[in-house]
Design a protein around this nucleic acid. Sequence first.
DNA 1: TATGAATGAGTGTTCATTCAT
DNA 2: TATGAATGAACACTCATTCAT
Lengths: 193, 193, 193, 193
Amino acid sequence: MLQDRTATAILEEAARVLAEHRESASLSDIAQGAGVARSTLYRYFPSREALLEALAERAMGELRARIEQAQIDTVPVPEALARVTRGFIATGAKYVALAYLSPKPSGSDELAINAPMTRLFERGIEDGSLRGDLPATTLLAIYGDLVQGAISRAAQGDDGVEPTSAAVLAVFLEGAVATNEPQVRAARGRNRG
Amino acid sequence: MLQDRTATAILEEAARVLAEHRESASLSDIAQGAGVARSTLYRYFPSREALLEALAERAMGELRARIEQAQIDTVPVPEALARVTRGFIATGAKYVALAYLSPKPSGSDELAINAPMTRLFERGIEDGSLRGDLPATTLLAIYGDLVQGAISRAAQGDDGVEPTSAAVLAVFLEGAVATNEPQVRAARGRNRG
Amino acid sequence: MLQDRTATAILEEAARVLAEHRESASLSDIAQGAGVARSTLYRYFPSREALLEALAERAMGELRARIEQAQIDTVPVPEALARVTRGFIATGAKYVALAYLSPKPSGSDELAINAPMTRLFERGIEDGSLRGDLPATTLLAIYGDLVQGAISRAAQGDDGVEPTSAAVLAVFLEGAVATNEPQVRAARGRNRG
Amino acid sequence: MLQDRTATAILEEAARVLAEHRESASLSDIAQGAGVARSTLYRYFPSREALLEALAERAMGELRARIEQAQIDTVPVPEALARVTRGFIATGAKYVALAYLSPKPSGSDELAINAPMTRLFERGIEDGSLRGDLPATTLLAIYGDLVQGAISRAAQGDDGVEPTSAAVLAVFLEGAVATNEPQVRAARGRNRG
DNA sequence: TATGAATGAGTGTTCATTCAT
DNA sequence: TATGAATGAACACTCATTCAT
């Protein structure tokens, strides 16, 4: 119980410190930020990599939860993406550092995110709501790039999570080229240029 | 004469090694990869930062050249983007590492890339070829995320530069949502190689 | 508690090693001599300069103490010099190295030594016990050379602190030229312990 | 012939550079100062130590010449010291660095200086012109400290060679304590306090 | 002869990790 | 359980020295 409290505190501080200092953050920095001695940190996470893995696991857990909450299987694909995107960006901004850090999420964790997303894109292609000339994996990869970039920018504080998410989603769904139809969603998130 | 050869060899090896090991690559790794002693490396680049700067300058130089060659001011915006994208990705794949490394390109260098691209997006918005509900800087940022992601993937060798570029361009311009009109450009880039 | 012990041990070993190898002594040498790892040394003195400063401070502290103990303001100048000289040489022999090392004692420290000595020489000139044809600062500089040289020789173990001090003092006060009067003081310092 | 010219130029530059930067002066500094490439320096002096030895030899040569010129065997001891002291200080100031540098002058060289000086002091003691309560070697050592200190100060430019020499000689011969007799020599070198 | 290029050994410093309390 | 102390392995960097031209 109490252990969990301390471990959680350390993890949250780690996320913050790593987001600031990137890979160059030392365990000293993290321990100091969390208000414990370096050695204490080792009681909870027996190595730097262990700490990073725990952090990744935590992030993946949050993302998994977001996906489940979004119930993406029950709504049209564009709506599902809309639901899920902001969640990704909000969560991701907390764990940006991970993107640049060594320990890839354990295969199982990554799968827990990738699998439902891949299914989502496949469904979209099949039901004709997403373009059919690109494989689902490619679409997912591109979507991932967009989300990851948005996370970086949101984390740097240049823009809020909200407008960043809206813009990314609009461009991903509708493209950057102008069309005749009103682009409602993006317009809502931003000023009416 | 001979100096330039060695310096170039070091730079190219540095690009390769850094692409693999990210920021964690040590000068030892780079020197070893380039087949010279650590101290020799210091003859050419008197500090780690100097090496990174030289590398960045090199990358920026190539990118600048690509942009100039593309003559983006003389063609419609979508065509200009098509011309420029593949160049970015091909060049960028050689210098992925830089994206994650500290020494940001010197202001002037970065400007030499950003300025013409910003102008391009502004022109697209003005002439109605790009959507007008998002500021040019936002569109550019999103485009940048896409290109950077594509670079990473192309560098990891998962896909070739060619199809990666085509896919990225198609989604950025037209979006992921299916439309009635045939999506010629993406189709061409993928299947007719 | 225990910290102080280790720090002190390091400092004393540093004094010894530096006295032997002069400026060329590496931190490795010092650490090895003190029986700790190089990195341990850094726990106590976060940089080479910090170690040297600590050493200088220590030496200055001892010298200050010697001067105070000697109560040089309460006795005739020659007697004051007699009292103070042996203290300087004994203390100095422990810290010879410092004379050759970069980080000059902090202004305040040096002042704490120089000021009272300058006053002493000025008093001697005024009350006629010291020759009046040379400024006090010159006399002090010459006295300093003598003491410093004596320290070097005493440290090299060629002679003991005792006879070295006596000889230096005798020559400084009375000169090397023979006089009619018995040279009591030097004789006393030499043979009568 | 031409070789000698270059070698001499290097040696003189070395003396200057070393006097400035002490032990920390690198061969690069010296070579650069002398206007030759590092590698060229190696043609003349096959190692750092060789260069230093050559420098020491040069200094000793000059000192030997000074002593011979002074014809110290033909005049009373105090006069001999007066003649020799200024020469030592003037020459020494050019080679201060050597005092702090590792390669002690080769035994034979040092002897060429020490032997005549020791003889001089011994003669002084025997003929009653120098005090007899201290061994000649001690007197010589003390005289050496004085001269070396004077060299340092003269080299630092705090005072000229001339007054520094006069003061040192006066104190060494007559002592710092005031006497009834006029202290002619020192008075000449300095202002009549 | 004179030099630019290359190198190995060493320096100060940092950091993840282990140990004793 | 929590911590201060200690350490070894690594890193960026310097320098005296050697080699090929």
